[in-house]
Computed example of a mutant assay.
Amino acid sequence: MSRRPTALFAMDAPNLPLLFPPDLLARLRELLDIDPACVVTDFGDPGPRARLPEVEVLVTGWGCPPLDDRALGALPRLRTVLHTGGTVKWLLPPESRARGLTVSSAAAQNALPVAEYTLGMILLLGKGAFAAREHHGADRHRMPGPALGEVGNMGRRVGIIGASAVGRRVIELLRPFDFEVLLYDPYVDAAGARSLGVRKSGLDDLLAGSSIVSVHAPATPETRRMIDAARLALMPDGSSLINTARGSLVDTEALVRELATGRLTAVLDVTDPEPLPADSPLFDLPNAILTPHIAGSQGNELRRLGAAVVDEAERLHTGAPLAHRVEFARLDRTA
Rank of each mutant, 00 (worst) to 15 (best):
P186N: 14
G167D: 15
V158Q: 08
H136D: 12
K127G: 02
H141E: 15
Y184G: 02
L148E: 12
G162H: 14
D139M: 05
I171R: 14
A129M: 07
E180V: 10
L174Y: 11
A147K: 10
R157P: 05
P176H: 03
A191N: 07
M154F: 13
G137D: 00
M143I: 13
D139A: 11
R133L: 11
R169D: 09
L182H: 03
G159T: 08
A131G: 15
A132H: 04
P144I: 07
R142P: 11
M154W: 15
S164D: 05
P144H: 10
K127E: 04
V151L: 12
L148W: 02
V188H: 03
A147L: 14
G137W: 00
H141G: 07
P176I: 00
A147D: 03
D185I: 10
L174K: 08
N153G: 13
L174C: 12
V181F: 00
E150G: 09
Y187S: 10
I171F: 11
V181G: 00
G155R: 04
E180R: 15
R156K: 15
V181K: 00
L182R: 15
I161G: 05
R140E: 03
A131I: 02
F177N: 14
V181H: 00
R156N: 04
A163C: 09
G128R: 05
G192T: 02
A165L: 13
L174V: 09
E150A: 13
R156G: 10
V158M: 09
R157D: 08
D189E: 04
H141C: 11
G167K: 14
D189A: 07
A131K: 10
A163K: 01
N153S: 14
R175H: 11
D139G: 10
R133M: 11
I171W: 09
G152Y: 06
F130K: 00
A165V: 08
H135L: 14
R140W: 13
N153F: 08
M154Y: 11
G155L: 04
M154K: 13
Y187L: 13
A129D: 01
V158L: 08
Y184V: 01
G152N: 07
D185C: 08
R169G: 04
D178K: 10
V181N: 04
D185E: 13
I160M: 13
E172I: 04
S164R: 07
L183N: 00
L148K: 11
L183H: 01
I161Q: 05
G167Y: 13
V170S: 12
V166R: 13
G159C: 06
R156T: 07
A132L: 09
G162Q: 12
A190Y: 00
G126Q: 06
P144A: 15
D189K: 03
R169F: 07
R140D: 06
G128T: 02
S164A: 06
G145W: 01
H135Y: 04
R175N: 07
R133A: 12
V188D: 10
E134C: 02
G167T: 10
A138N: 09
D189F: 03
A129Q: 01
L173Y: 10
A129K: 02
V188S: 11
D178I: 00
E134R: 10
V170K: 09
